[in-house]
Design a protein around this nucleic acid. Sequence first.
DNA 1: CATGAATGAGGTTTCATTCAT
DNA 2: AATGAATGAAACCTCATTCAT
Lengths: 209, 209, 209, 209
Amino acid sequence: MTNRSVIKTGSRRPDARPGEILSAALDLFAERGFAATRMEDVARRAGLSKAGVYLYFPDKTALLKALVNEMAGANVAVARGLVEQHQGAVGPLISTLLVFLARQLRDTRFPELIKVVISESRAYPDVGRIYLEGVISQGLPLFEGLICRGVASGEFREVDAGLAVKAMIAPMLLSAIWKTVMEPLGAEPLDIEALAAQHAETFLRGLAP
Amino acid sequence: MTNRSVIKTGSRRPDARPGEILSAALDLFAERGFAATRMEDVARRAGLSKAGVYLYFPDKTALLKALVNEMAGANVAVARGLVEQHQGAVGPLISTLLVFLARQLRDTRFPELIKVVISESRAYPDVGRIYLEGVISQGLPLFEGLICRGVASGEFREVDAGLAVKAMIAPMLLSAIWKTVMEPLGAEPLDIEALAAQHAETFLRGLAP
Amino acid sequence: MTNRSVIKTGSRRPDARPGEILSAALDLFAERGFAATRMEDVARRAGLSKAGVYLYFPDKTALLKALVNEMAGANVAVARGLVEQHQGAVGPLISTLLVFLARQLRDTRFPELIKVVISESRAYPDVGRIYLEGVISQGLPLFEGLICRGVASGEFREVDAGLAVKAMIAPMLLSAIWKTVMEPLGAEPLDIEALAAQHAETFLRGLAP
Amino acid sequence: MTNRSVIKTGSRRPDARPGEILSAALDLFAERGFAATRMEDVARRAGLSKAGVYLYFPDKTALLKALVNEMAGANVAVARGLVEQHQGAVGPLISTLLVFLARQLRDTRFPELIKVVISESRAYPDVGRIYLEGVISQGLPLFEGLICRGVASGEFREVDAGLAVKAMIAPMLLSAIWKTVMEPLGAEPLDIEALAAQHAETFLRGLAP
DNA sequence: CATGAATGAGGTTTCATTCAT
DNA sequence: AATGAATGAAACCTCATTCAT
């Protein structure tokens, strides 16, 4: 649906090539999974010959790594920005963050990427590691800090921040899985933003002292 | 149930063969993923020749389907039992259910199976469908009924039960992913039961009117 | 010319398969060189499918290694036998050995194998090492011992045994190269046995005190 | 009329380009072998783009042919010079020639070239033919003439000159192979000049009537 | 029931070579 | 003269799957 691949032009601007290839790759990884995507398909969808892809990426996994790097970095950066600029009670910020994430999940191919990472991480640990280091190790402490802040200020009751963060994030993960795994099987679509909103409400109420 | 590979001899009881094969398969699927598991490996671990596996299962995916069927069914059945036997306030039951699930995730290879289903569902929709129909379509309404009961009785505030169920379950999914994807990459282990307990507390508080 | 490959039967005796494959491989390596020989060609000439070869040899290089091992071992063993059984003056033994080698070069595919080893040793050092350890490191000391014996007994004048051995063997190497490299280009055939005989005569005369 | 204006960048002397390329090529052929040397490597080492090489040489084999031509010609020319200027007994001349060759083998990349010719001759018969015609067909008769002279003058006993020449040259071939094949595998270095000297001595003694 | 032997169908990757600029 | 970009053709190797015994 959210297909942004470029099929048409022979790409006058060589600088655009890597991006075109990555876009094609993500399309296909999301559609068929990493293993089932042949380099030739990526190439053709990027308007290139099979060998051409190898001019820009040494490996099939390099495509995946680049995708994870790229998308992961962007999201964490935004979240970090929101957190650092924020002042006052953390509850509203948590709501904002969850809704922001929900929109990302709804509007980008972040869910597909998460799914691919989950799927391929064992076979290609590098991919998992990039995600772990680029997203998990960046994002969780960020949110953990928020919980701690809330606890310290008396806004939240005493909870284990590490666990709380996971409970806070979990519905976003579930949304990604639902969208990429269950919906293609015929499950009814999930309103991710609504889930995020209701979850934020419940979660914050649940943390109230 | 949690049988971890039988190595010994030619297995006196022919009836045990399918189970041995499935056990071997789950071991390997969990360890290396579905795609990276060769039928020959399954066979060898089950103490059988490669061709022997085909006497019991027509297909590689048949192994996966059988595994999903088996384990999914079991868990849902227990949950259904708990729910149906229960009377009175639903809050404690939800706690009980979450902790039960947490223990299942901790003590069985349910997480691995979930991971495999997520990974292979696109390539083998049958597998996904079995899970969807055997677990999701069974479990979610079950829990949804609980939420509705709570709302109806005034125990919970007014919420969208469908969304609430997902928020309720999400940390369990996250736990499965964490255990099977992040921990092998070096992430610190997650205390699933503690997560479930704290989440239950927060979730129920959050639903209080 | 001395083509011994087996094309016909489907090979009732499975034990014969490795040998058949090796024979086919040597035919082709000798004919086209190692790099230009495709596994599929080997397979077809051995009356097997491409994948079938991999049941017996893990690698293309494994074919080469096996060939070197096999043939090298045989020749050294014979030479060693001759040397160990011999008594008396070493001159006649050296003549015998050279003529024996000449006949091997003339009648077997030893020359082709030497040529392949020379050609592929850099790309596949294992192959070279097998030859070095199986032939060179076995054969040279054997012959060196002979020279030393002759020097000690006064049959030969004082010479550097290590160098003498190389001079003694060199025409055999040249013969192998001539046969496999020059003759296919149209060079006139070399009478290896005659070369060996004349060389033995000259060499022994040259070593006389 | 003067020629077109000369483009400045790159090598100052356009005439030097082919030589630079050949030098780079020989370096790499010697180091990794012909097949394993990529045109891109040659280009880079010559300070050129991949396509640039094709401005000077139509083919990968053209590089090899040019190298063989160049080096072969040079050596034969020197040898021919020595032979033609010589008068008197041929024994000393043969010593001189062998030592000259030994030094060439020790100090130039002649050995590598011989090795490459041996290796690639089957796949690229042109290369072999150049060597056959430029070196073998020139050099052998030259030396054969010497032997014949010696026999005619009574300096040598009656021998088959064709065979004698091969025996005379063989240690030089062995040296080349030893240096390029065995030494990289860890075999102990060979003192080529010493081998040539001792061989000359033995060979000439062996030819004495 | 069980297996050893065999295969067909692919997919990734590598390069020599070409061409528009 | 020179090159960056692109490609087509190959070849190795892997496995799920089948079948005669």
